[in-house]
Design a protein around this nucleic acid. Structure first.
Lengths: 127, 127
DNA sequence: CTTGTGCTTTACGTTAACGTCAATGCTAGA
DNA sequence: TCTAGCATTGACGTTAACGTAAAGCACAAG
């Protein structure tokens, strides 16, 4: 069980940020007797998901949907099926993004290739 | 040469958005005699880069740096070297993001694997 | 010629994702 | 017991990335 400060430092965010995520319903930390937040392993795992999600440009609303996969009441079969279906959509979206990233990366690499050629020519000329 | 409207429609954004990118110095379209914007292939290529960049969460400021690789005055050797160096950094950053995306994707896949097991058990029980 | 349609700039409005500040409360240590 | 250092909940401020509205210019159709 970690305090809000420990959790915040682990992910390089402020405590305000963590409280904000709670406001949005993404986190549900327990409380101590004196009303202070306590973060279990499960809540820390959700923070990890949020951290990653932000880095590649999902909105908090989109991330929330993912996070809820960890929270969902999976007791019923119907609920379980819906969760799986939604999860698969998320995975497809990630695959799409990976492809686009690689496409752009390749474009930049070929652009840099051209620049390198130009540079070689310049080097050849100056001797 | 495309009009601002054609360019906007090609990327599913408004004309306001395109003017905003110009405000930020990311685009420099030519003008007609009556002061209307005209987008060459090079400007459209930059818009393509912006479009991609946004999709995986680079800020416009970050994207601007990339776009400037296309614009840079590459006449001098020093300038060319700097451009190449910067481009390589951008590529590394993309590689980092691709790795993270794949890591998260795998985590979600294993989570979904667990759910599928649970679902199988439920199905087994109900018969 | 004027009416409509689309472009122009200028300027203020909006939303997400926090930052910052104020007022208050617990609690460990001098 | 008092105070320093954390936590708490409001509440208002800020920035990026546009949206929206106003006022005017250009030009093709009727």
């Amino acid at each position: 069980m970690k305090s809000i400060r420990e959790a915040a430092e682990e992910f390089g965010v402020t405590t305000r940020t963590i409280r904000y995520y709670e406001e949005l319903g993404m986190l549900k930390p327990e409380r101590t007797g004196s009303n202070k937040r306590l973060f279990s392993n499960a809540e820390i795992a959700k923070l990890k998901l949020i951290d990653r999600g932000k880095k590649y440009g999902f909105t908090l609303e989109e991330i929330k949907e993912m996070v809820l996969l960890f929270d969902a009441d999976r007791s019923g079969r119907k609920q379980l099926e819906r969760t799986i279906e939604y999860g698969q959509k998320q995975i497809q979206e990630m695959e799409r993004r990976i492809e686009e990233l690689e496409k752009t990366k390749q474009e930049m690499e070929s652009l840099l290739g051209e620049f390198n050629e130009k540079l070689s020519k310049l080097k050849g000329m100056e001797k």
